[in-house]
Amino acid sequence: MKWIGLIAVIFTGGLLLSAMDDFPNWGDAHSPANSSPVSQYYIEQTMTDSGVPNMVTAVLADYRGYDTMFETVVVLIAGIAIMAILRVAKQVPGGAKPTPAHEVGDQHDIIIGTTCRLLIPVLQLFALYVIAHGHHSPGGGFQGGVILGASFILAAIAKGLDPALQRLPEKRYVKLAFVGVVIYVSFGVACLILGENFLDYGVLHELLPTMSAEEARSHSMLGVEIGVAFTVSMIMFAIYANLASKGELEGGL
């Protein structure tokens, strides 16, 4: 059985490697991907269009706003799917008996507790910096959201899942995950109301008289990134909390 798989893998890899000569060289600035008018436009026009120096954030939140919006929705759906899968399984009788892992998590280690108490605020502050500074330096909603989610997961690992869930109960994190998507969509709807296309932030400068259209784009990107960070951080914690407790949300690892 294994050699059939090996043959299939080597055949696939051989086909891909046989096409190697047609691919552009490493670091070729004039390869089809790098010389396409789309990426040239992003590099040349991002600053004039929105005044955002980080092109990755500008492309993510402005030029490809639809894509990012639905990526956020995919993350949200994945989190809900995990909860749904594990909750349904809870009602199925029989199967493997649950392992009594509760006693292990109840031990309070003073070194781990103190380290996490010092580390978690710094981690969360850094996550907020990464989110808020996403259009001037490497960062953005996805990256900062994952760091923020990791800080909650760290709290859940160090102190046990139950104290973490007391501070961030399931109702609250699901609500906050939805709030993120609602923030994102509301920016698009606001553009629609003001008579422009969905997620065409330039028109939002009419809301604040002192703002130019470029500044409106830049600030809307920040707002959208905050929405993404809400959803991503809460879903990361939801994935951990549900997987670690087999969907029962008590005990944990």
């Binding site: 993510l60 989190g79 959201g145 994935i239």
Partner: peptide
């Protein structure tokens, strides 16, 4: 960037 985060979410599922 988006593929990594969505990959984590699908791996969770």
């Amino acid at each position: 960037l988006t593929a990594i985060v969505v990959g984590v979410a699908t791996l969770g599922v």
